[in-house]
Design a protein around this nucleic acid. Structure first.
Lengths: 124, 124
DNA sequence: AAAAATAGATTACAGGTGTAGTCTTAATTT
DNA sequence: AAATTAAGACTACACCTGTAATCTATTTTT
């Protein structure tokens, strides 16, 4: 599995919003949340390419970047990893921890019910 | 929040199994899963103390370690962090991602239902 | 055409991390 | 008592990370 640092993920996440995209577009998108220097983002783009998380094509002297994987796939792998590390691979204890510490809203509960519902329908 | 590296967490996790405990006991517990040198674990214990995740009392020339926080508290904070980063703070998309990629067993579903049930009882 | 801006490439550098090795001192074994 | 072992302290070192600055080659602007 490709391992990304937090900062690298944030850059990739800005690309996932809409791609392919140029470095300047990515920098633009990140400018709201992060106060990163343009050079910092370029460095991170370079590292992402090196790690195989991005590819690019040249367009004149610009690069047009495309992610090499989908966000859902990446987050699924990270989630499995996380749940394995902290909860021995079981998801309920995570949710239960949230419930116990009052992190869950009625909306969360409704959404969770729907997920369960859909899962059960799918079993038939 | 105290930030622990993966290796540091694994050492702390071995202590959470049962504490207080000496370095040798922790090393013993870790010997099944990890092939770490004893010195490595000692280094990690030192770093954990420095970060404020552990304290110790002296017993002769040994230290007896105790965690400074509970596992559930630590994992809750990590979980919130994780879900914030990858799912904008909402838990259902994580579970949904699991469901879609067939990561959920009937047991997981049963456990999740119970969590929801308990939550609802608690609301009344 | 000369100057300035801009793209990416290369270099920088401190602090964290994994993974020990060496040093010092006290306890245990012979 | 001398030698060995074992506990923790200190040191090491390469790679990762966050966060850019500088260099080089084009474009764009004046």
């Amino acid at each position: 599995m490709i391992e990304l640092s937090k900062a690298e993920f944030d850059v990739l996440d800005a690309l996932w919003i809409n791609y392919p995209a140029t470095a300047s577009q990515i920098i633009e998108r990140l400018s709201d949340d992060k106060k990163w220097h343009e050079k910092t983002i370029k460095t991170l783009l370079g590292r992402l390419v090196k790690k195989g998380a991005l590819t690019f094509e040249k367009d004149g002297r610009q690069y047009i970047y495309t992610p090499c994987m989908e966000r859902a796939d990446y987050t699924l792998k990270e989630s499995k990893n996380f749940i394995e590390r902290f909860f021995s691979g079981r998801i309920a204890p995570l949710v239960s921890g949230f419930a116990k510490s009052e992190q869950l809203s009625q909306q969360d509960i409704n959404e969770l019910k729907k997920v369960i519902d859909d899962w059960e329908k799918n079993q038939k």
